[in-house]
Design a protein around this nucleic acid. Structure first.
Length: 871
RNA sequence: GCGGAUGUGGCGGAAUUGGCAGACGCGCUGGCCUUAGGAGCCAGUGGUUUUACCGUGGGGGUUCGAGUCCCUCCAUCCGCACCA
């Protein structure tokens, strides 16, 4: 019997899997298809054990599903365009393609050393022309459908990366990559009209019930739908009408002024005759230039300026002053806000500062609360003693009364009295209540008034119900080199002309200066820029921006199905057969961007008839991070754990096992090198059972030991199966196999060597090999072979358990007295309550505990527990 | 501020129709074996003032019985954040 030598056997089996094409899939075979997808990585640098978790989990799922009889597709590719490669190119002076392809090669080797297998024939690399040709094709489809458009817009500009960022890439006013403060800059940019799909993207989240609730909530918040009313306010002495969006139309009678965003298009027009025009425009410029991070800073005081103009609140004919302020955003709603200082905290602060009127229109309900007498007995304060000082029912009754009166909301109001006094207010009252000072709506519950006032406005042409979203259109232009060129041409005669599909791909020019200058590096490649118009053949210029890499990654999963097709991005029939993806696995950091964009692109392709499904990912799993010393692994922190040395020392199976055992995979986990050794020990223990098997007797053995072991085996099969099928609880699945392996040793220690015959131990070993195969595939294959089996575990059937073998004939029942454990009694299964009670009554310990006491109650749960209540 | 999650030994973590808290692993202690041990095997390992009591972030409640259910407070993490 040789020692467990992982290095040797792992190489052997990795070669064999490759040779036999274990992971190769023919997409034409669609029966029992299972599409297992891992988010394709950005090829940046060597992988650490944290990255490994993603691939290992995916590999486990793929192998497990294989054993469950599925035809498993598990592909891998590279999200290979993007800034870091370009930055590295600038730094080291090598072409981004070189560094990218070098990284890909290295990462691929690492994946292989983990024993993580893919159908590499389907590898896609987004920076290769045969891929980005179709990224450009997708752009053209969106353009065709009017979903790609160009407009001048204030955009997020990262001065350090010299590029525009999508809203999603700005984190608290800073660039998500380099952390520099993001400026606002007005540029002509390409956008994808994702807002047109806002409602659908929101609605269909309900269908994705196999996604983590957290991710769905995040997307919901990001889309940010709110219902309200667009209200028209005509400006006095002008034909301008300003429209405000509000979700609190019930507070319209309390609107005492109105505020515009500095960016509002009417600002110039409104102040053009104002003698203080220059002062106002200075203020506007100041606000516009203020960085977003400063504007958003908590506690930042709101600034504003009076325009000198007034508008009319048509519902009551009131003339209200028109302000410009920094706290109103142009990006949301209409960029104009009706201010109700009594019922909106921001408006309240602003009104206080500029001494604008504050008027209450929603009153606090005034519940009539019967006085509850407190401190009527001796002892501490009411608070200390709680309800014990009151009649037990009075608390209940009191809260009921409060609830009722809130429901009726102020039915008890005395005519003309208002509970909420402006003089007494220290902040806005934003809660629910009853309308006051609101004309014919007085006395209405504010939630009812919302509908009533909206109806009134629609009937009288004052306003219109409206829905607004926080979601902005997706800005996809990037002023960088290393991305897919946007396939558009500008012709002086014909205007904007798309590149004809048959001329795709628009190739990235080879030699170019990458150093960022503020304009796209492609502009320096004159051969590229200067072209002919596809329409009139006259001189024309190409678009010099490239696409956001999120465009590349929003469709790659479709390409895997037919990665080599030259005349189409994918085959419709094959794609329809294989989609949706059965299991998508990746980091939660993509909860919004990538997953939202992918859903959007899929819906567009669906609407255009290219695919028959409208959601790409059936089930989503987001794994947690692996941290070291409490922090995310990073080179700068020096806490990166490289898998390479660990694999050299312990083997890939040990690293895999520990990674899976470390904790529930959806949670963050702390890496411990010591823990790795424990995993290694376990594998050795399993391996060494081979030796026990060799010396086992052909027949005989100890019946009790065999029975216990076989029972444990069935229990383990059940537990492992349920843990994988459920929420991927590999950690507890592995602990179940550990218990099984331990039982082998426990039996020997209790019943001596030779307590298992060969048949028994062989059965246990065969099943154990299958149970661990998805986690530690190399050692499973090797033990399997040493056992003399000819079929690979991955071509074998997943083991099944026998329900009747799970439980022993007798059961140990805990006996409690007054809820405290006092004894345990072994008894046969299936006894009725009377027999159990009789048995328990004979127990010495129980007798001791209940003697001299009055037994009030017996709680008997057969085969589970007995509790005797005494006093 | 809003939304979501988490809180259990020295550590990672188990435990759901409410029923023996701490599975499994790490670490630690002791023993066996060994020329040796950073190998292997066996035993022990929540705390304490140990006939028993106390223990799942704090406080309260429901129950024969609560880590699990209810109320309340606290802490940490994540996401969003002047969204009208």
């Amino acid at each position: 019997m040789q020692r467990y030598n992982p290095t040797e056997i792992e190489e052997k089996w990795q070669k064999k899997w490759k040779k036999e094409g274990l992971f190769k899939v023919d997409v034409k075979e669609t029966a029992n298809k299972y599409y297992c997808l891992m988010m394709f990585p950005y090829p940046s640098a060597a992988l650490h054990v944290g990255h490994g978790r993603n691939y290992i989990i995916g590999d486990v799922v793929a192998r497990y599903k294989m054993m469950r009889g599925y035809n498993v597709l598990s592909p891998m590719g590279w999200d290979a365009f993007g800034l870091p490669a370009e930055n590295a190119a600038i730094k080291k002076g090598i072409h981004p393609r070189e560094s990218t392809l070098g990284n890909i090669k290295m990462m691929k080797q690492q994946m292989e050393s983990w024993g993580v297998e893919y159908d590499w024939d389907r590898e896609v690399t987004s920076c290769m022309p045969d891929y980005y040709k179709w990224t450009q094709w997708i752009f053209l489809q969106l353009y065709k459908k009017g979903l790609a458009y160009r407009k001048k817009a204030f955009v997020n500009w990262c001065p350090s990366c010299s590029t525009v960022l999508a809203n999603e890439q700005v984190i608290e006013g800073s660039c998500e990559r380099c952390d520099s403060q993001v400026d606002q800059k007005e540029l002509e940019q390409w956008f994808f009209k994702i807002t047109e799909y806002a409602q659908k993207l929101l609605d269909d989240l309900d269908k994705l019930n196999e996604w983590p609730e957290k991710v769905r909530t995040m997307q919901r918040n990001w889309i940010g739908r709110s219902e309200g009313v667009n209200i028209d306010f005509p400006v006095v002495d002008s034909d301008i009408t300003l429209t405000c969006f509000t979700t609190r139309v019930d507070t319209i009678f309390g609107c005492t002024y109105m505020v515009l965003a500095a960016e509002h298009s009417m600002v110039g027009e409104l102040v053009k005759d104002n003698p203080e025009k220059d002062k106002i425009m200075d203020f506007v410029r100041e606000v516009r230039n203020e960085s977003k991070i400063k504007r958003v800073q908590t506690g930042e005081e709101k600034k504003g300026i009076f325009t000198g103009r007034y508008a009319i609140n048509k519902i009551n004919g009131r003339k209200i002053p028109l302000y410009i302020a920094d706290y109103v955003l142009m990006e949301y709603g209409t960029g104009a806000v009706m201010a109700v200082p009594a019922h909106d905290q921001r408006d309240y602060e602003f009104a206080k500062k500029y001494e604008l009127p504050i008027e209450v229109v929603i009153d606090k309900p005034s519940p009539v609360i019967p006085p509850v007498r407190r401190n009527f007995s001796e002892g501490g304060s009411a608070a200390e003693n709680g309800s014990s000082l009151c009649h037990p029912d009075s608390e209940v009754r009191r809260s009921q009364i409060i609830r009722n009166s809130l429901a009726k909301a102020g039915a008890e109001r005395v005519e003309g009295s208002i509970n909420l006094k402006v003089e007494e207010m220290t902040e806005a009252y934003e809660e629910e209540g009853v309308l006051v000072n609101s004309d014919k709506f007085d006395g209405m519950k504010n939630t009812d008034a919302m509908a009533a006032i909206a109806d009134h406005m629609e009937q009288n042409d004052i306003g219109k119900r409206s829905i607004h979203f926080k979601l902005r259109d997706w800005l996809i232009s990037r002023q960088r080199y290393w991305g897919a060129p946007i396939p558009m041409i500008y012709c002086d005669k014909c205007g904007i002309v798309p590149v004809p599909e048959k001329e795709l791909p628009v190739l990235l020019p080879e030699v170019v200066e990458f150093r960022p200058t503020g304009e796209s590096p492609l502009n320096a490649a004159k051969d590229f820029v200067n072209t002919k118009c596809p329409k009139c053949s006259g001189d024309a210029k190409r678009e010099i921006d490239t696409m956001d890499t999120f465009v590349d990654s929003s469709w790659y999963y479709l390409r895997y199905i037919s990665p080599k097709l030259e005349d189409k991005p994918f085959d419709k029939k094959d794609v329809n057969n294989w989609f949706p993806v059965d299991q998508y696995i990746g980091g939660v950091e993509h909860a919004i961007l990538h997953l939202l964009y992918s859903r959007f692109i899929t819906k567009v392709l669906n609407d255009m008839g290219y695919v028959d499904f409208d959601e790409p990912f059936q089930r989503l799993f987001t794994q947690g991070m692996i941290v070291k010393d409490g922090a995310k692994m990073s080179k700068s922190k020096g806490n990166v754990v490289s898998p390479d040395e660990l694999i050299k020392k312990y083997g890939a199976d040990t690293v895999r096992l520990y990674t899976l055992f470390i904790g529930p995979p959806e949670k963050d986990a702390e890496w411990s090198d010591r823990g790795v050794e424990g995993a290694f020990r376990f594998l050795k223990r399993v391996w060494n059972i081979l030796e026990i098997l060799e010396t086992s007797p052909e027949k005989g053995g100890d019946e009790k030991a065999k029975e216990t072991l076989i029972r444990k085996m069935h229990q383990s099969i059940k537990k492992v199966t349920e843990d994988i099928d459920g929420e991927f609880h590999f950690n507890t699945a592995i602990s179940a196999v550990m218990e099984l392996a331990n039982q082998v040793y426990v039996g020997i220690s209790e019943s001596g060597d030779g307590c298992y015959d060969k048949a028994c131990l062989t059965e246990v070993m065969n099943n154990m090999v299958l149970l661990i195969a998805p986690f530690v595939p190399h050692i499973a294959e090797e033990i399997n072979e040493q056992m003399g089996n000819k079929t690979s575990p991955f071509k074998s059937e997943w083991p099944s358990y026998d329900e009747s073998m799970l439980k022993a004939d007798t059961v140990v029942v805990p006996v409690q007295v007054n809820g405290k454990l006092r004894s345990t009694i072994e008894m046969s299964r299936g006894l009725d309550k009377d027999k159990i009670q009789a048995l328990v009554e004979t127990d010495e310990k129980v007798k001791e505990w209940i003697s001299g006491k009055e037994v009030r109650k017996w709680i008997i749960l057969p085969e589970k527990l007995v509790n005797i209540v005494v006093s």
